[in-house]
Design a binder for these strands. Structure first.
Lengths: 167, 167
DNA sequence: TATGGTGTTCAAAACATTCTGAACATACGG
DNA sequence: CCGTATGTTCAGAATGTTTTGAACACCATA
Protein backbone atom coordinates (compact mmCIF):
# COMPACT_ATOMS: atom_id res chain seq x y z
CA UNK A 1 0.00 0.00 0.00
CA UNK A 2 2.88 2.32 0.92
CA UNK A 3 2.39 5.33 -1.36
CA UNK A 4 6.00 6.44 -1.25
CA UNK A 5 7.39 2.98 -2.00
CA UNK A 6 5.12 2.79 -5.03
CA UNK A 7 6.46 6.08 -6.30
CA UNK A 8 10.00 4.84 -5.90
CA UNK A 9 9.11 1.69 -7.78
CA UNK A 10 7.73 3.72 -10.65
CA UNK A 11 11.03 5.57 -10.90
CA UNK A 12 12.90 2.32 -10.79
CA UNK A 13 10.92 0.98 -13.73
CA UNK A 14 11.56 4.32 -15.38
CA UNK A 15 15.32 3.98 -15.31
CA UNK A 16 15.16 0.33 -16.35
CA UNK A 17 13.09 1.19 -19.40
CA UNK A 18 15.13 4.26 -20.20
CA UNK A 19 18.16 2.03 -20.48
CA UNK A 20 16.14 0.01 -22.95
CA UNK A 21 15.53 3.00 -25.17
CA UNK A 22 12.33 4.66 -23.98
CA UNK A 23 11.94 8.16 -22.58
CA UNK A 24 12.05 8.52 -18.80
CA UNK A 25 8.46 9.69 -18.61
CA UNK A 26 7.25 6.70 -20.63
CA UNK A 27 8.92 4.24 -18.30
CA UNK A 28 7.97 6.00 -15.11
CA UNK A 29 4.31 6.19 -16.08
CA UNK A 30 4.30 2.52 -16.99
CA UNK A 31 5.92 1.67 -13.68
CA UNK A 32 3.27 3.57 -11.79
CA UNK A 33 0.43 1.97 -13.72
CA UNK A 34 1.85 -1.45 -12.87
CA UNK A 35 1.19 -1.01 -9.17
CA UNK A 36 -1.08 1.97 -8.59
CA UNK A 37 -4.36 1.89 -6.73
CA UNK A 38 -6.90 2.43 -8.10
CA UNK A 39 -5.83 0.75 -11.25
CA UNK A 40 -7.32 3.31 -13.66
CA UNK A 41 -5.88 6.80 -13.34
CA UNK A 42 -6.65 10.15 -14.87
CA UNK A 43 -4.00 12.49 -16.19
CA UNK A 44 -4.35 14.65 -13.11
CA UNK A 45 -3.82 11.71 -10.80
CA UNK A 46 -0.79 10.66 -12.81
CA UNK A 47 0.68 14.15 -12.58
CA UNK A 48 0.44 14.10 -8.81
CA UNK A 49 1.74 10.56 -8.55
CA UNK A 50 4.86 10.70 -10.70
CA UNK A 51 5.60 14.41 -10.38
CA UNK A 52 5.68 15.26 -14.06
CA UNK A 53 4.00 18.10 -15.90
CA UNK A 54 0.62 17.69 -17.52
CA UNK A 55 2.39 18.04 -20.86
CA UNK A 56 4.77 15.18 -20.23
CA UNK A 57 2.03 12.94 -18.93
CA UNK A 58 -0.16 13.71 -21.92
CA UNK A 59 2.47 12.84 -24.49
CA UNK A 60 3.79 9.95 -22.44
CA UNK A 61 0.35 8.40 -22.19
CA UNK A 62 -0.24 8.73 -25.88
CA UNK A 63 2.98 6.81 -26.49
CA UNK A 64 1.94 4.12 -24.02
CA UNK A 65 -1.44 3.85 -25.64
CA UNK A 66 -0.07 3.60 -29.16
CA UNK A 67 2.38 0.95 -28.07
CA UNK A 68 -0.50 -1.18 -26.87
CA UNK A 69 0.58 -1.41 -23.25
CA UNK A 70 -2.19 0.78 -21.88
CA UNK A 71 -5.78 1.50 -22.79
CA UNK A 72 -8.18 4.39 -22.27
CA UNK A 73 -11.18 3.66 -20.13
CA UNK A 74 -14.17 5.85 -19.34
CA UNK A 75 -13.46 7.75 -16.12
CA UNK A 76 -15.86 7.78 -13.22
CA UNK A 77 -16.28 11.56 -13.13
CA UNK A 78 -15.16 13.76 -16.01
CA UNK A 79 -12.89 12.91 -18.93
CA UNK A 80 -11.15 9.57 -19.24
CA UNK A 81 -8.57 7.46 -17.44
CA UNK A 82 -5.85 5.03 -18.41
CA UNK A 83 -5.15 1.53 -17.19
CA UNK A 84 -2.51 -1.03 -18.03
CA UNK A 85 -3.44 -4.29 -19.73
CA UNK A 86 -3.18 -7.42 -17.61
CA UNK A 87 -1.11 -9.00 -20.33
CA UNK A 88 0.63 -5.76 -21.26
CA UNK A 89 4.03 -7.11 -22.08
CA UNK A 90 2.97 -10.31 -23.71
CA UNK A 91 0.67 -8.37 -26.00
CA UNK A 92 2.68 -5.27 -26.73
CA UNK A 93 6.15 -6.64 -27.16
CA UNK A 94 7.25 -8.32 -30.30
CA UNK A 95 10.67 -9.82 -29.57
CA UNK A 96 11.34 -10.23 -33.28
CA UNK A 97 10.68 -6.62 -34.27
CA UNK A 98 14.28 -5.55 -34.13
CA UNK A 99 15.42 -8.79 -35.65
CA UNK A 100 13.20 -8.13 -38.64
CA UNK A 101 14.58 -4.69 -39.30
CA UNK A 102 18.11 -6.00 -38.99
CA UNK A 103 17.35 -8.97 -41.20
CA UNK A 104 16.54 -6.49 -43.95
CA UNK A 105 19.79 -4.65 -43.39
CA UNK A 106 21.79 -7.86 -43.62
CA UNK A 107 19.95 -8.88 -46.76
CA UNK A 108 20.79 -5.56 -48.39
CA UNK A 109 24.40 -6.15 -47.47
CA UNK A 110 24.32 -9.50 -49.22
CA UNK A 111 22.78 -7.91 -52.28
CA UNK A 112 25.58 -5.37 -52.22
CA UNK A 113 28.53 -7.77 -52.01
CA UNK A 114 26.91 -10.04 -54.57
CA UNK A 115 28.51 -13.43 -54.98
CA UNK A 116 31.85 -12.50 -53.49
CA UNK A 117 31.96 -15.60 -51.35
CA UNK A 118 34.57 -14.43 -48.86
CA UNK A 119 32.64 -11.34 -47.86
CA UNK A 120 29.21 -12.93 -48.12
CA UNK A 121 29.97 -15.42 -45.38
CA UNK A 122 30.18 -12.70 -42.75
CA UNK A 123 26.68 -11.57 -43.56
CA UNK A 124 25.02 -14.86 -44.35
CA UNK A 125 25.41 -16.54 -41.00
CA UNK A 126 23.81 -13.65 -39.12
CA UNK A 127 21.03 -13.35 -41.66
CA UNK A 128 20.23 -17.03 -41.33
CA UNK A 129 20.21 -16.74 -37.56
CA UNK A 130 17.66 -13.96 -37.59
CA UNK A 131 15.55 -15.69 -40.20
CA UNK A 132 15.45 -18.77 -37.99
CA UNK A 133 14.51 -16.90 -34.86
CA UNK A 134 11.88 -14.81 -36.60
CA UNK A 135 10.27 -17.96 -37.89
CA UNK A 136 10.28 -19.77 -34.59
CA UNK A 137 9.68 -17.24 -31.81
CA UNK A 138 6.04 -16.51 -32.67
CA UNK A 139 5.17 -20.17 -32.13
CA UNK A 140 6.73 -19.92 -28.70
CA UNK A 141 4.58 -16.93 -27.83
CA UNK A 142 1.52 -18.72 -29.07
CA UNK A 143 2.37 -21.69 -26.89
CA UNK A 144 2.54 -19.44 -23.85
CA UNK A 145 -0.75 -17.83 -24.71
CA UNK A 146 -2.59 -21.13 -24.97
CA UNK A 147 -1.05 -22.47 -21.79
CA UNK A 148 -2.12 -19.32 -19.95
CA UNK A 149 -5.61 -19.53 -21.38
CA UNK A 150 -6.04 -23.06 -20.04
CA UNK A 151 -4.64 -22.15 -16.62
CA UNK A 152 -6.48 -18.85 -16.08
CA UNK A 153 -9.64 -19.10 -18.21
CA UNK A 154 -10.80 -15.63 -17.09
CA UNK A 155 -8.55 -13.74 -19.51
CA UNK A 156 -9.71 -10.71 -21.43
CA UNK A 157 -10.76 -11.18 -25.04
CA UNK A 158 -7.76 -11.50 -27.31
CA UNK A 159 -8.12 -8.36 -29.40
CA UNK A 160 -4.78 -8.23 -31.21
CA UNK A 161 -3.75 -4.65 -30.50
CA UNK A 162 -1.13 -2.65 -32.35
CA UNK A 163 2.24 -4.38 -32.18
CA UNK A 164 4.52 -1.48 -31.45
CA UNK A 165 8.10 -1.69 -30.28
CA UNK A 166 9.48 -1.01 -26.84
CA UNK A 167 12.24 -3.19 -25.43
CA UNK B 1 33.58 -3.87 -54.58
CA UNK B 2 32.28 -0.30 -54.96
CA UNK B 3 34.07 1.61 -52.20
CA UNK B 4 31.52 4.38 -51.96
CA UNK B 5 28.54 2.05 -51.83
CA UNK B 6 30.20 0.19 -48.98
CA UNK B 7 30.62 3.40 -47.05
CA UNK B 8 26.97 4.23 -47.56
CA UNK B 9 26.04 0.78 -46.34
CA UNK B 10 28.09 1.27 -43.18
CA UNK B 11 26.15 4.46 -42.47
CA UNK B 12 22.88 2.68 -43.12
CA UNK B 13 23.75 0.03 -40.56
CA UNK B 14 24.77 2.87 -38.28
CA UNK B 15 21.35 4.48 -38.30
CA UNK B 16 19.59 1.13 -37.95
CA UNK B 17 21.62 0.28 -34.89
CA UNK B 18 21.35 3.76 -33.44
CA UNK B 19 17.59 3.35 -33.47
CA UNK B 20 18.17 0.18 -31.50
CA UNK B 21 20.06 2.02 -28.81
CA UNK B 22 23.73 2.03 -29.79
CA UNK B 23 25.88 5.04 -30.51
CA UNK B 24 26.21 6.05 -34.16
CA UNK B 25 29.92 5.28 -34.25
CA UNK B 26 29.35 1.80 -32.85
CA UNK B 27 26.83 0.95 -35.53
CA UNK B 28 28.74 2.53 -38.39
CA UNK B 29 31.92 0.67 -37.51
CA UNK B 30 30.03 -2.59 -37.29
CA UNK B 31 28.42 -1.90 -40.66
CA UNK B 32 31.77 -1.29 -42.27
CA UNK B 33 33.30 -4.44 -40.76
CA UNK B 34 30.40 -6.45 -42.18
CA UNK B 35 31.42 -5.76 -45.76
CA UNK B 36 34.91 -4.27 -45.86
CA UNK B 37 37.83 -5.68 -47.82
CA UNK B 38 40.20 -6.77 -46.46
CA UNK B 39 38.23 -8.19 -43.64
CA UNK B 40 40.66 -7.21 -40.86
CA UNK B 41 41.19 -3.49 -40.46
CA UNK B 42 43.45 -1.32 -38.34
CA UNK B 43 42.25 1.74 -36.52
CA UNK B 44 43.84 3.95 -39.14
CA UNK B 45 42.05 2.16 -41.96
CA UNK B 46 38.78 2.45 -40.08
CA UNK B 47 39.29 6.18 -39.58
CA UNK B 48 39.71 6.71 -43.30
CA UNK B 49 36.83 4.42 -44.17
CA UNK B 50 34.08 5.72 -41.92
CA UNK B 51 35.32 9.30 -41.51
CA UNK B 52 35.43 9.38 -37.73
CA UNK B 53 38.18 10.61 -35.43
CA UNK B 54 40.77 8.26 -34.03
CA UNK B 55 39.21 8.83 -30.62
CA UNK B 56 35.76 7.73 -31.72
CA UNK B 57 37.10 4.68 -33.51
CA UNK B 58 39.17 3.70 -30.50
CA UNK B 59 36.30 3.84 -28.05
CA UNK B 60 33.84 2.43 -30.57
CA UNK B 61 36.04 -0.56 -31.23
CA UNK B 62 36.49 -1.27 -27.56
CA UNK B 63 32.72 -1.36 -27.21
CA UNK B 64 32.42 -3.70 -30.18
CA UNK B 65 35.09 -5.93 -28.78
CA UNK B 66 33.55 -6.09 -25.31
CA UNK B 67 30.17 -6.88 -26.80
CA UNK B 68 31.67 -9.91 -28.49
CA UNK B 69 30.85 -8.91 -32.05
CA UNK B 70 34.43 -8.21 -33.09
CA UNK B 71 37.82 -9.59 -32.16
CA UNK B 72 41.38 -8.28 -32.25
CA UNK B 73 43.73 -10.04 -34.57
CA UNK B 74 47.48 -9.54 -35.03
CA UNK B 75 48.01 -7.03 -37.81
CA UNK B 76 50.29 -7.74 -40.74
CA UNK B 77 52.55 -4.74 -40.13
CA UNK B 78 52.51 -2.82 -36.88
CA UNK B 79 49.94 -2.87 -34.07
CA UNK B 80 46.74 -4.86 -34.37
CA UNK B 81 43.58 -5.03 -36.41
CA UNK B 82 39.93 -5.86 -35.81
CA UNK B 83 37.66 -8.24 -37.64
CA UNK B 84 34.05 -9.22 -37.21
CA UNK B 85 33.08 -12.74 -36.20
CA UNK B 86 31.44 -14.87 -38.86
CA UNK B 87 28.67 -15.63 -36.44
CA UNK B 88 28.76 -12.19 -34.85
CA UNK B 89 25.07 -11.76 -34.18
CA UNK B 90 24.27 -15.31 -33.24
CA UNK B 91 27.09 -15.27 -30.71
CA UNK B 92 26.95 -11.74 -29.33
CA UNK B 93 23.25 -11.18 -29.04
CA UNK B 94 21.25 -12.59 -26.24
CA UNK B 95 17.61 -11.96 -27.07
CA UNK B 96 16.64 -12.60 -23.47
CA UNK B 97 19.03 -10.10 -21.88
CA UNK B 98 16.46 -7.34 -21.62
CA UNK B 99 13.78 -9.76 -20.65
CA UNK B 100 15.90 -10.90 -17.73
CA UNK B 101 16.43 -7.41 -16.38
CA UNK B 102 12.76 -6.66 -16.70
CA UNK B 103 11.80 -9.96 -15.13
CA UNK B 104 13.66 -8.79 -12.04
CA UNK B 105 11.83 -5.50 -12.04
CA UNK B 106 8.47 -7.24 -12.26
CA UNK B 107 9.41 -9.61 -9.48
CA UNK B 108 10.33 -6.68 -7.25
CA UNK B 109 6.94 -5.20 -8.03
CA UNK B 110 5.25 -8.38 -6.90
CA UNK B 111 7.28 -8.40 -3.71
CA UNK B 112 6.15 -4.83 -3.14
CA UNK B 113 2.41 -5.33 -3.59
CA UNK B 114 2.56 -8.54 -1.61
CA UNK B 115 -0.55 -10.68 -1.70
CA UNK B 116 -2.89 -7.90 -2.78
CA UNK B 117 -4.48 -10.06 -5.44
CA UNK B 118 -6.06 -7.30 -7.49
CA UNK B 119 -2.78 -5.48 -8.05
CA UNK B 120 -0.65 -8.59 -8.32
CA UNK B 121 -2.47 -9.80 -11.40
CA UNK B 122 -1.17 -6.90 -13.48
CA UNK B 123 2.38 -7.88 -12.70
CA UNK B 124 2.12 -11.64 -12.63
CA UNK B 125 1.04 -12.23 -16.19
CA UNK B 126 3.96 -10.26 -17.61
CA UNK B 127 6.40 -11.87 -15.24
CA UNK B 128 5.23 -15.32 -16.28
CA UNK B 129 5.54 -14.39 -19.94
CA UNK B 130 9.16 -13.33 -19.56
CA UNK B 131 9.99 -16.34 -17.43
CA UNK B 132 8.58 -18.58 -20.14
CA UNK B 133 10.50 -16.92 -22.95
CA UNK B 134 13.73 -16.80 -21.00
CA UNK B 135 13.45 -20.49 -20.36
CA UNK B 136 12.68 -21.45 -23.94
CA UNK B 137 14.60 -19.13 -26.26
CA UNK B 138 18.06 -20.52 -25.44
CA UNK B 139 16.97 -23.96 -26.67
CA UNK B 140 15.93 -22.34 -29.92
CA UNK B 141 19.34 -20.77 -30.33
CA UNK B 142 21.00 -24.05 -29.57
CA UNK B 143 18.87 -25.71 -32.21
CA UNK B 144 20.04 -23.20 -34.78
CA UNK B 145 23.64 -23.67 -33.79
CA UNK B 146 23.55 -27.42 -34.23
CA UNK B 147 21.70 -27.22 -37.53
CA UNK B 148 24.32 -24.76 -38.79
CA UNK B 149 27.15 -26.98 -37.61
CA UNK B 150 25.82 -29.92 -39.56
CA UNK B 151 25.29 -27.84 -42.70
CA UNK B 152 28.57 -25.88 -42.68
CA UNK B 153 31.02 -28.04 -40.73
CA UNK B 154 33.85 -25.51 -41.22
CA UNK B 155 32.70 -23.25 -38.40
CA UNK B 156 35.11 -21.59 -36.00
CA UNK B 157 35.59 -23.09 -32.55
CA UNK B 158 32.75 -22.14 -30.25
CA UNK B 159 34.59 -20.06 -27.65
CA UNK B 160 31.68 -18.62 -25.68
CA UNK B 161 32.57 -14.94 -25.68
CA UNK B 162 31.15 -12.29 -23.37
CA UNK B 163 27.40 -12.04 -23.73
CA UNK B 164 26.91 -8.31 -23.84
CA UNK B 165 23.78 -6.49 -24.91
CA UNK B 166 23.07 -4.65 -28.13
CA UNK B 167 19.74 -4.90 -29.82
C1' DT C 1 67.81 5.02 -26.22
C1' DA C 2 65.95 8.13 -29.85
C1' DT C 3 62.31 7.93 -33.40
C1' DG C 4 58.17 7.20 -35.74
C1' DG C 5 54.06 5.04 -36.05
C1' DT C 6 50.26 3.40 -33.16
C1' DG C 7 46.72 3.49 -29.76
C1' DT C 8 44.30 5.62 -25.50
C1' DT C 9 42.24 9.08 -22.55
C1' DC C 10 39.97 13.29 -21.29
C1' DA C 11 37.91 18.06 -21.18
C1' DA C 12 35.21 20.73 -23.83
C1' DA C 13 32.39 21.62 -28.03
C1' DA C 14 28.71 20.08 -30.94
C1' DC C 15 24.66 17.89 -31.03
C1' DA C 16 20.22 15.84 -29.85
C1' DT C 17 16.54 14.80 -26.73
C1' DT C 18 13.27 15.58 -23.06
C1' DC C 19 10.62 18.30 -20.09
C1' DT C 20 8.00 22.31 -18.93
C1' DG C 21 4.92 26.49 -18.71
C1' DA C 22 1.63 28.82 -21.02
C1' DA C 23 -1.54 29.46 -24.61
C1' DC C 24 -4.99 27.06 -26.98
C1' DA C 25 -8.86 23.60 -27.78
C1' DT C 26 -12.71 20.61 -26.07
C1' DA C 27 -16.62 18.96 -23.59
C1' DC C 28 -19.47 18.56 -19.83
C1' DG C 29 -22.73 20.34 -16.23
C1' DG C 30 -25.49 23.80 -14.73
C1' DC D 1 -24.90 28.98 -23.82
C1' DC D 2 -21.62 30.20 -20.22
C1' DG D 3 -18.04 28.66 -16.82
C1' DT D 4 -15.11 25.23 -15.40
C1' DA D 5 -12.57 21.08 -15.39
C1' DT D 6 -10.02 18.60 -18.61
C1' DG D 7 -6.80 17.55 -22.31
C1' DT D 8 -3.46 18.95 -26.17
C1' DT D 9 0.21 21.36 -28.51
C1' DC D 10 4.35 23.96 -29.03
C1' DA D 11 8.49 27.04 -28.41
C1' DG D 12 12.07 27.40 -25.46
C1' DA D 13 14.77 25.91 -21.27
C1' DA D 14 17.05 22.20 -19.11
C1' DT D 15 19.37 18.14 -19.46
C1' DG D 16 22.10 14.44 -21.40
C1' DT D 17 24.97 12.20 -24.94
C1' DT D 18 28.44 11.81 -28.63
C1' DT D 19 32.28 13.37 -30.95
C1' DT D 20 36.51 15.58 -31.31
C1' DG D 21 41.28 17.64 -30.94
C1' DA D 22 45.13 17.48 -28.34
C1' DA D 23 48.08 15.72 -24.89
C1' DC D 24 49.80 11.49 -23.25
C1' DA D 25 51.56 6.50 -23.17
C1' DC D 26 53.31 2.49 -25.70
C1' DC D 27 56.24 -0.38 -28.49
C1' DA D 28 59.07 -1.92 -32.20
C1' DT D 29 62.98 -0.80 -34.71
C1' DA D 30 67.31 0.96 -35.80
Amino acid sequence: MDEEASRRYAEEVGVALTQMGTTPSFGTLLGWLLICEPRAQTITQLCDAVGLSKASVSTGMRALEQSGLVRRVPASGRGHAYEIHDDAFARAIDPTAKMRTFLEVLQRGLDLVGDDEARAQRLRHSRDFYAFMIERVPALMEEFRTSEASTHPSSTVAGTGPQEEMS
